[in-house]
Design a protein around this nucleic acid. Structure first.
Lengths: 187, 187
DNA sequence: CAACGCCTATCTATCGCTTGGTAGGTGAGG
DNA sequence: CCTCACCTACCAAGCGATAGATAGGCGTTG
C-alpha cells in the first residue's frame, strides 16, 4: 500500500483532475509535479484509467471521512447542514477547483466506466449523508428527505460551477445564501 | 456569410461541444461528420479557437431567440417561468448533452479567453431573462429578482449535470420538481 | 466570343508536438 | 543476489495547423 511516491502521485493527480478533468490529466506534467519521470508512474498505476479510479476512490473515501468528522464536530444536524456548503467551497478556495462529480458530468461520454463508478460513489455518499442529516434535523418530512437531499446536492454543485466560471468565490456564497432565502436550504 | 458548409460545420461542432466539450472537439471527426476533409474547415474558421467562438456565439444567439419566442408564446410570466426548465431538458433529450455553460466551468482553466466571453454571454442572457420574468411575475420582491435568477440558473445547471452523469432524464424532472417543492421555483 | 485573372471551396500531404504506453536497463538496500 | 523503485529511450496514434495544388465559376477586357 501507499508508498510515499504513490501518495504523492495520487495527491498531484487529484489536484490536476479537479482543475482539468480526467482528460486534462497527463503523465508528463504529473511526473514533473511529483518529481519523478513519467514512465515511473506506471510502476504504481498500470494505466491512466487505473490512476483515475484510484484518485476517485480516494476522493470519496476522504469525503466520507470529512462528512463523518463534521457530524462529530457539529453534532446538531441543523448546524451541520449549515456547514455542508463549506465542503464545496474549499475546492474553490484551493485554486478555483471543481468537484470531481461535476467533471464526471462534463466528461461523461469519454470517461472509463470504472472511473464513473467511483465518482458516482462520491455522489451517493453525499446524498446519503444529506438525507440522513435532513431527516434527523427534521427540516423536511421523512419521506421527502431523499429528494430534498438530491435537490440540495445538485444545486450546490451548480453553485460551484457558476462560481468557477466567474472565478468568484463570493458568487458561490451569494448563491448559497440565495438557496437559503428561497427555502431550498434551511435559513 | 453562412454558406452551407459553414453552417454544417457550426451545427456539427455545436453537437460535439455539447457532448465532449471544447477540448473534446476535433477537426478530423468534425470533418467526417460534415463530409469534408479536416483541412477544409480552416477555410471557414481560421483556428479552433475561432470555431469555438463562433459556436458559442451562435449558441447564445439561438438561446436569446428561443427565450424571446417563449415569452411571446406564453405571455403569462408565471407560466413562462414554469416552462423555463424545458430549455435545459432539451439538450438532455438530444443525446444526453450538456449546456455549454457547464462545459465552460469544467474547462475553465484551458479555454481560450474569447470562447469564455461568448459562453458567459449565454449565462448573462439567461440571468437577464429570468430576472425580468421573476420581477414581472412578482414571485419575489423586485430587489431580490437578480439573486433569485442566479440561484435558479445555477440550480437548473446543477440538475442537468446530475441527470447527465446518471444518463437519466427522469432525474432531471425529479430535481426540478424538488426545487418547486422547496420553494426555489414557484410551485 | 474568348482568353485571362481571380475567387471559392475543396483536396493531398505533411509538419511539429503531445499523448498514453512499453521495453529494457540501473543502482540501492536487505 | 535479488527485488524494489526508478530510469532512459523509445513507439504509435492523435492533435492543431500549414503548404501547395486543383477544379470550377464569374466577370472583365481585348
Amino acid at each position: 500500500m501507499g508508498s510515499a511516491s504513490r501518495e504523492a502521485i495520487l495527491a498531484a493527480a487529484k489536484r490536476a483532475a479537479q482543475a482539468h478533468g480526467y482528460g486534462g490529466l497527463n503523465f508528463r506534467d504529473l511526473a514533473v509535479e511529483v518529481g519523478i519521470k513519467a514512465a515511473s508512474i506506471y510502476y504504481h498505476f498500470p494505466s491512466k484509467a487505473d490512476l483515475g479510479v484510484a484518485v476517485a476512490r480516494r476522493y470519496w473515501e476522504d469525503t466520507a471521512a470529512d462528512l463523518d468528522a463534521m457530524l462529530v464536530e457539529t453534532p446538531d444536524p441543523a448546524a451541520c447542514l449549515r456547514r455542508y456548503p463549506e465542503m464545496f467551497r474549499r475546492s474553490l478556495e484551493a485554486g478555483n477547483r471543481l468537484c470531481l462529480c461535476s467533471f464526471m458530468a462534463a466528461e461523461y461520454a469519454d470517461l472509463p466506466e470504472a472511473v464513473k463508478r467511483e465518482v458516482q460513489a462520491f455522489a451517493d455518499i453525499n446524498l446519503a449523508w444529506l438525507g440522513k442529516v435532513l431527516a434527523t434535523a427534521a427540516v423536511v418530512q421523512a419521506e421527502d428527505s431523499k429528494s430534498r437531499a438530491a435537490a440540495i446536492f445538485a444545486a450546490i454543485a451548480g453553485a460551484q460551477l457558476m462560481a468557477r466560471s466567474r472565478a468568484d468565490i463570493s458568487l458561490y456564497d451569494a448563491l448559497i445564501e440565495g438557496y437559503r432565502a428561497a427555502g431550498l436550504l434551511p435559513a
